[in-house]
């Protein structure tokens, strides 16, 4: 309780990190829910990895002298966001095209992309001393240095994503649950699918920049998987997933501060524990 009071204090040094964790914990599960119900969990694993590879690539371009050096943190952030967004959206586009054309195994492509993105992130990183330090922190999920500008941008984007998901939930649900029925009702299924995946891509890009791929993946998938065990309808499913994500993010931060542990890994481990509790409750209740 003392630790909670301390980290919620407006003068707490890492207050922006606390806020960004909670914002991410509330929003990522809503996006992750879309991946879970569409059986695209593998994509949820691969996209954060691809996103961080995009960041590594953007910094590598800078290291090779192909892009001008950004001397300020804001410039670095823009560069990282560009790399992350281009790679994530590009991958989403390719995966959705493959899924639509039903050529080859999507799972195999996603798996291969995950492995390759992981390998290339490391290779690009070791050959780029300029970006190595920051990127290593990112890959480890160290949620420490968050500026007020970063916090405002991330919170704004996540609020917009959550609002868009809420406003168009009827359309997203229809094209996800029964795309054929949606076509028969003259809905533009490809358009809605692309829109949804763009929201997913944008969220993942922003989240990876803030907390790294491990934590992003954890918040994308573990809260929805836990909520699925306990909810009785889609509304409960969404609210419970977001609630579990937000509360776990805050509790994880407290625990990490108290025990002097890395925040990201603590968050994910705690999410795993919550999933375990959800599983047991599900077995007892049903």
């Amino acid at each position: 309780m003392e630790t909670l009071r301390e980290i919620l204090d407006p003068h707490f040094l890492l207050r922006n990190s606390v806020y960004i964790s909670v914002v991410l914990g509330l929003t990522c599960p809503l996006v992750g829910l879309c991946l879970v119900v569409r059986r695209l969990v593998f994509m949820g694993v691969a996209l954060p990895q691809i996103s961080s590879c995009g960041v590594a690539f953007a910094f590598a371009l800078q290291g090779w002298g192909l892009l001008p050096h950004a001397h300020q943190r804001a410039g670095e952030q823009v560069l990282a966001l560009l790399g992350s967004t281009v790679f994530t959206l590009g991958a989403i586009l390719l995966f959705s095209l493959q899924a639509r054309r039903r050529r080859g195994s999507l799972e195999a492509s996603v798996g291969a992309a995950y492995v390759l993105a992981g390998a290339w992130s490391i290779l690009l990183l070791v050959k780029n001393p300029i970006g190595e330090h920051g990127l290593l922190d990112l890959l480890k999920g160290e949620i420490i240095a968050v500026s007020s500008f970063e916090l405002a941008v991330t919170a704004g984007v996540f609020a917009a994503v959550a609002a868009t998901l809420a406003v168009f939930q009827k359309e997203f649900l229809l094209v996800s649950f029964d795309p054929e029925m949606a076509v028969s009702l003259k809905k533009n299924v490809l358009g809605w699918d692309t829109f949804l995946l763009l929201l997913v891509g944008l969220t993942i890009s922003m989240a990876v920049l803030s907390v790294g791929p491990l934590v992003t993946f954890g918040f994308l998938l573990l809260p929805p998987l836990t909520a699925r065990l306990l909810a009785r309808n889609m509304r409960q499913f969404a609210l419970l997933a977001a609630g579990l994500g937000g509360v776990t993010a805050l509790a994880g931060f407290c625990l990490a501060c108290r025990l002097d542990l890395p925040v990201g890994a603590t968050d994910v481990a705690l999410l795993g524990g919550v999933y375990g509790v959800g599983f047991v409750v599900n077995r007892i209740v049903r």
């Binding site: 119900v37 059986r39 649900l173 649950f177 029964d178 699925r228 909810a231 309808n233 889609m234 499913f237």
Partner: peptide, 9 residues
Amino acid sequence: SLDPIYLLS
């Protein structure tokens, strides 16, 4: 053809 993962009444 409809996936039971959706919690729909």
